[in-house]
Design a protein around this nucleic acid. Structure first.
Lengths: 216, 216, 216, 216
DNA sequence: TATGAATGAGACTTCATTCAT
DNA sequence: AATGAATGAAGTCTCATTCAT
């Protein structure tokens, strides 16, 4: 058996083995670069470099910089919401326990992962990509609000929570997290002592639940 | 004689000397464009157009796009903090009244004005301008936190508030505002019913003060 | 089948990959343009046009206009000096024969080729590029002087030449050539009868050798 | 008598007193800047600054950058030639003494003054200003050559000099000076020991006269 | 499929020139 | 006569995108 044939059996060239993984690798690299630089300042050459391919290859999988950006947003963030919804549906405890759980889950899955960059990106680029923004708003923001609103409502019905405006209270459960998600990264280098996430989450949960609890 | 006719008689000069007014006019126009597009995507031609000058004129007053960006941030936002500090110092009422007042003032002076774009810009461009970010953090963010922390502390000392972590509680008083400032604009077009700021502020103040109040 | 027809059948590609050849083609085109216009007035678009590429392509090979200029000087002139040195080392004849030979070689390789523009460029731009000027001075001017000084010295030792100041005599063997190199091009259009190089070289050699010869 | 009136008598404002001198001051400043930077890279703002006026004022005296450049060349160099011609005409000594005298005069009046920049400028910008170049060639170069040719001819007629090609020998008397004029400035910073002008002139005169002298 | 050389539109920036003051 | 703010044309350089290999 000739050497050429043998090689094609035992050790397929790298790009062939990883063909299927390419789009995901590119999206991961692109997320990093878009988050660091913003859409306009991100260079596709940098994305390609981090994905271990060359510029031309990007265009085999995404038809433009914009398409890549949209893929980054669409493919990375939606699954997290689904996880939250599943959690809420199967959660056995009280409403206040679920509020706390969702807050901590959000931080675990988004706030302290690379996904934290997505909200920042969307805030920054919303005006540039209205269609994507609408998608994000409906599939992430609104869905997240509905999820939390359901929990608040459950708490009010059970008598755990005061009769507050449900939609607004839901937003207020999340907005300190959203802000921290964005601000922590932006100002990381300005806070030599670091940002004490634990204390921040604890205090938010404490104050929020204190504020919403029905004391009769 | 109508203004139009008068103007058409004495031909309007091709340009006017406005040395004193120009920098402020340019900064105002630049704030708009930077907020809409972000630093990298903002075109100086657009800034010039809105300021009523030509591209070249920008360079009489600012030595580069970056310098203009820095001027926008430095010159527009700091005065607001000073106003907040002055308000706190001379405020005659209780701590809870002052918390409410500061929250509403922030919205009146920043949240619903063009300045609302500054926090968004800083979040987006922090990585690109570390020095400016440090300035902003120290002169705006940290100063704002200290201001609110002072109020919380006053409330704890007077027995109005529970003994919470002061620094974190201060951040939590502001973070829903920060988030709303940024998100409201980003998602304006996605909320056909609009964003009910009044209800948002009211509910935040209600929940927050409820949560922090000492019920003994 | 004629070449033209063949080409018109298979449409000529919009561009070709010529990675290896491009830098030299660009340097050649740049030499022309820099010499005609000087550094500041040279337009890269013109360089690109003459090299058969577009502006952007220049930046694949040279990181700035300045870098291109430096490449032009460094890569084109130094080899000539080396040739002169090799010639001197292997020359079998007398010192006076070698002086004549070097003078004529210089004219053949520099004075009447495109390289003649390099000395002119260096004179004009020396103040703008001090580092490059130092390189040129050491690798071209000083080396050339040393080369000729060695020949003069040989002639003095052999008794062919008078005991003149060697370094200065070396410069004086070359300076009429340097001047003619630069002036001939500058004033070409002002001398309808042209510049009789042959007579100029002959007379210089005659006078110079007459002047330096040791008549006992 | 009121103060205003008194001031207008005793101390007329600077610009009034110097009105007549302005063009010359500007030309002097322009010479400096053009020589340092070349025509294209010279900034009129810099010229204005050195002349102690503002940019706009330049246009009261010269209709464009090009016009100013031409004035620099036309007004500064021609007088020197006239001096040389006058010197030759009234010179009482031998031809060889006159050659030496003219060489040394050239250096005194041009080579070591600011005028040394003019030849350099003309070499560099000849292609850009053909008309000016023609003027310069005829009024300076050719006139200079004729002047020296006359001296050579006188020497041949008197038997002092050999029967060389007069026009070429005239050029060769000057070309080492022309080259030194240009090169000395360009490479000033590369020659830490400096350029020994005295030795250069002495050796040139020695070799040249040696070479041209008729030894019977 | 993958590459990366080449393109070309578009941005920032400079500066000669104009003109209101 | 003098100023200097303002203009606008033009140049350098970048980078998303294309396409020959």
């Amino acid at each position: 058996m000739p050497a050429v044939a043998r090689r094609s059996r035992k050790a397929r060239p790298r790009w062939q083995r990883r063909k299927a993984a390419r789009p995901a690798e590119i999206v991961t690299a692109a997320l990093e670069v878009f988050v660091e630089r913003g859409f306009a300042a991100a260079r596709l050459e940098e994305v390609a470099r981090r994905a271990g391919v060359t510029k031309g290859t990007l265009y085999l999988y995404f038809k433009s910089k914009e398409a890549l950006f949209k893929a980054v947003v669409r493919e990375t963030i939606v699954p997290v919401i689904a996880q939250g919804e599943a959690l809420a549906q199967s959660f056995p405890g009280t409403a206040r326990e679920l509020v706390e759980r969702l807050v901590r889950e959000y931080w675990r899955l988004v706030g302290e992962t690379d996904l934290a960059g997505i909200p920042k990106l969307m805030m920054a680029e919303a005006a540039t990509f209205p269609q994507l923004t609408r998608f994000y708003y409906e599939e992430v923001v609104a869905r997240g609000h509905r999820l939390m609103a359901g929990v608040i409502e459950r708490g009010i019905k059970s008598g755990e929570f005061r009769k507050v405006d449900v939609a607004t209270a839901a937003k207020l459960a999340m907005s300190p997290l959203m802000h921290a998600t964005v601000a922590r990264r932006a100002f990381a280098s300005c806070m030599p002592e670091g940002f004490d996430v634990g204390k921040y989450l604890d205090t938010h949960i404490d104050l929020y639940l204190h504020g919403i609890t029905n004391n009769r």
